[in-house]
Write a protein that binds this DNA or RNA. Structure first.
Lengths: 205, 205
DNA sequence: CCTATTTCGCTACGATAGTTTCGTAATTGA
DNA sequence: TCAATTACGAAACTATCGTAGCGAAATAGG
C-alpha cells in the first residue's frame, strides 16, 4: 500500500560485489582482526558510508563474507552410507581447513585456528550473528541428519542410535581439532572417525 | 653469571593479584570485547603501564585469566571406565558451560558461546597464545588418554581403536555444541556420547 | 521536463580503547 | 651516600569503528 518502496536511486549491485570481494581478499590475507573497514572501502573503490549503508557493523560484513565462502555442501545419497559420509566429512573438513590456513600470509600449515577461531569470537560477541552462524551450519547438517535417519529406517543403523548424536560425533571432532587442538585432519583421521562412530551403530550381525 | 637479575625496584606481587582479580571480575560480568584495559587498570588501582609491563597485550592478559580459571581436571581411575569418563566429561562440560554463561550479564541461558568463543578468537590471533591454549588442553586430555590406553591394555577396549580418536569423539562434540551449534549439554547427552563411542570400541562378546 | 527520493563518494569528525613515551619513585649493590 | 636499574603513574599517541554533512548522480512518478 501507499509509498512505493522502490524510489530514488537504486543500489548498485556491482558495488556490493566489489565490497564483498575486497573484504574476502583482505580477510584471507590478513585475518579478521587486522582487517580495517577503511581498507576494505579503499580497495573496493567506494566510500565507507556506502559500506555502512549495507552492513551495520564490521562483524556483520565479515560474517556475510564467510557465509558466502562456506556455501552449501551437497551430500550424495548413494546407498553406501560410509562413502556418503566420507564425502561429506571431507567437504566440511576441507572448507574449515581453507579458513584455517587463511588469515596469516604464507605460513599456511601452522596449527592456528585462523578465521574459524575469529568467527567463533564474532559469533560470541553478537547474539544475532551467533544465530546466523548456527543457522548456516544447521541447514548444512540437516541434510546429513536426513541421510542418517533414512538409513536407520532402512535398518542399516540401529534404531536406538540418535542420528543427531551420531553426527555430532562425526562433525564435532573436526571442529574440535580445528578450533582447539590444531591437530591435522587427514583422510585416515576421517576414516577413523567413521569407523568409530559406525562400529557401534550398525546392527550386530 | 654476571648481573644479578634482581636489581632495581622489585615488582609488587600484590599488584599482579589485583590486576588479575579485576580482569577476572570484568571478564565474567562483561565478556571479552566489552572489557577495556582502562577499566581493568582503574579497578585494580594501578596504571595501564604497569599492566603492559606484565602482559604484552590485552589478549595475553585475558588468556592468563582464563587459564587460571580453567585449572586442572583430575580424572579418577576406578576401573569402571564408563563412570570415569562420565565424571571427566561432566567436568569438562561444566567448565565450558560456566564460561559460556559468563560474559553477558544476566541472560545466562542463551546459546552464545560466550567466553569460550572469544577464547578461540584470541588463540587464533596470536600464535604464541594458540600454543598456550593447546598445551593446556593437551595436558588435560593426556590423563584421559592414559586412562583409555591402560583400559585397552587391560583388554576392555579393542586394540585397534585409537584412544586419541576415541577421546576426540567424546570431547569434540562438547566443544562443537558450545562453540558452534549452541545446543544444550545435559547428562543424557553425555551418556549418549559415551554409549556411541564405546559401543563399537568394546570387544564383541 | 520537473520534483521527490534515494544512493554514492568525499571529507571531516567524535569516540573508544590499545599501546607508548616520559618523568618520577623505589630498591639494590658498592 | 651515590649510581645503576627497575617499577610506577600520568598523559600523550595512534588506530579504527562508526556518523554526519555535503553536493552530485540516478531513478520513479506525475
Amino acid at each position: 500500500m501507499a509509498g512505493s518502496g522502490n524510489r530514488g536511486r537504486p543500489r548498485d549491485a556491482e558495488v556490493d560485489r566489489r565490497i564483498l570481494n575486497a573484504a574476502r581478499d583482505l580477510l584471507l590475507s590478513k585475518g579478521y582482526a587486522a582487517l580495517s573497514i577503511d581498507e576494505v572501502a579503499e580497495r573496493a573503490g567506494s566510500a565507507k558510508t556506502t559500506l555502512y549503508r549495507r552492513w551495520p557493523t564490521k562483524d556483520h560484513l565479515i560474517l556475510s563474507v564467510i557465509a558466502q565462502m562456506q556455501g552449501d555442501v551437497s551430500i550424495p545419497d548413494s546407498g553406501d552410507l560410509r562413502a556418503d559420509l566420507r564425502y561429506y566429512l571431507k567437504a566440511v573438513a576441507g572448507g574449515l581447513d581453507g579458513m584455517r590456513k587463511a588469515g596469516r600470509g604464507e605460513d599456511a600449515d601452522d596449527r592456528s585456528a585462523g578465521l574459524v577461531g575469529e568467527l567463533a569470537g564474532v559469533a560470541a560477541r553478537h547474539r544475532d550473528l551467533g544465530e546466523l552462524v548456527r543457522s548456516v551450519f544447521e541447514r548444512r547438517n540437516a541434510v546429513a541428519i536426513g541421510l542418517l535417519t533414512s538409513t536407520t529406517e532402512r535398518g542399516a543403523l540401529r534404531a536406538d542410535v540418535d542420528p543427531v548424536v551420531l553426527l555430532d560425533q562425526l562433525i564435532g571432532p573436526i571442529y574440535y581439532r580445528v578450533l582447539v587442538t590444531g591437530a591435522p585432519i587427514d583422510t585416515d583421521y576421517i576414516e577413523a572417525l567413521i569407523d568409530g562412530a559406525l562400529l557401534g551403530a550398525e546392527p550386530r550381525v
